[in-house]
């Protein structure tokens, strides 16, 4: 069996690969080295971020390139924007995507717009890695899924991987990209293992992946919801219904073609997105298919999302809040007018 590593280790490898190749790549953020650098406590035990994703980097690359910053998101994201504009290739880690409020200007008004405002004479090769997603019992201010916000901003590329292999290949692409990329890491995926190639490889940003082929309906799912969709698809298969699961992998740019082609084949579409349901990736994809693929459809487009309320702190409520295979099955039963799929 091929090598299996975790989502977190895949991200760690991607950073290492690019840092070895290009010494202009630096990593900065809160606790990314994660060791006090004290005399009695060397860097060997540096913990590498609150989730340990960047563990081992400071030992290999030193504190010149792995920079623990003060708790000052606007400060260090702003510094990363101009370090990118002046020749570095920084990776800034925003510990939780929920903290974007503290530095949105630097992302939205600066990083996203400098190339445009400079008439193409500047480049911002900056990656903002950030953690998102519910299911970690982290409550309303540490559990949101905010990629829809960034998708709405021109000049930002938005990447949401669902597997360790995708995470590594997409992150290497993001770091080597000459534009600003916001890279979303679902915190509940960090320990999920998968087959990941060794060494340097890239996956193009803007290319969707069909995670499961099928002819009867299309499920477009984002991030960890790809796994929820795959679980639902397995149950549907037992009923002889073959779902095609499409993982966009990046939301900006969005691979519209792969989505439309799949819907053309299956004539039915369910979109699974754990973000709140207004103005999110699901509504965006729904609008896309309604606009450009209306004639392909035999049934209304359906969405499985969180309700339009904050992520609950109560574990029981949080479980209720998120999309599940059962919720997908309930929606599919309406689409194909067969109630029996609900009770598989």
């Amino acid at each position: 069996m091929a090598r299996q590593i975790s989502f977190a280790d895949a991200i760690n490898e991607a950073i290492k690969e690019t840092m070895r190749n290009d010494e202009n790549v630096i990593l900065l953020g809160e606790d990314v080295a994660g060791g006090a650098d004290l005399d009695h406590l060397g860097d060997e035990d540096a913990w590498g971020g609150v989730m340990g994703v960047t563990k081992g980097l400071v030992q290999e690359f030193g504190r010149d390139r792995i920079l623990d910053t003060p708790i000052a998101e606007a400060g260090y994201v702003g510094a990363a924007v101009s370090a990118a504009a002046t020749g570095m290739r920084p990776i800034a880690e925003l510990m939780f995507n929920d903290f974007i409020g503290s530095c949105l200007d630097e992302v939205m008004n600066q990083g996203a717009k400098l190339r445009y405002m400079f008439g193409g004479h500047a480049k911002i090769p900056l990656v903002i890695r950030t953690m998102h997603g519910a299911g970690f019992r982290a409550a309303a201010q540490h559990s949101q899924t905010l990629y829809g916000m960034f998708t709405a901003i021109p000049g930002v590329k938005v990447v949401v991987p669902s597997t360790p292999a995708d995470a590594k290949g997409l992150l290497i692409s993001a770091i080597e990209d000459d534009d600003m990329v916001v890279f979303f890491e679902d915190k509940t995926l960090y320990n999920v293992k998968g087959e990941v190639p060794e060494g340097h490889y890239t996956i193009p940003i803007g290319k969707a992946d069909i995670k499961r082929a099928g002819d009867d309906l299309t499920i477009v799912a984002i991030g960890k919801q790809v796994n929820t969709a795959l679980a639902a698809a397995e149950q549907l298969a037992q009923k002889g219904i073959e779902a095609e699961v499409v993982d966009p992998r990046s939301l900006s740019p969005l691979d519209e073609n792969t989505i439309l082609k799949s819907v053309q084949k299956t004539s039915r579409l369910v979109i699974v997105d754990e973000a709140n349901p207004r103005c999110n990736a699901a509504t965006d994809i729904s609008a896309l298919v309604a606009d450009k693929g209306f004639d392909y459809l035999d049934a209304p487009i359906k969405m499985v999302t969180a309700p339009h309320s904050p992520v609950p702190f109560s574990p029981a409520l949080e479980d209720l809040y998120l999309p599940t295979p059962e919720k997908i099955l309930a929606v599919v039963s309406e689409l194909i007018d067969d109630e029996s799929v609900v009770t598989i």
Partner: peptide, 26 residues
């Protein structure tokens, strides 16, 4: 080496720090 004018107030300060830091690293 002149940046476009910072319009939202004070955002250019972290930028200058980043550029200066980059020069130091280079």
């Amino acid at each position: 080496n002149i940046f476009p004018p910072g319009i939202p107030i004070a955002t250019q300060l972290p930028h200058a720090v980043g550029a200066a830091f980059a020069e130091k690293r280079k």
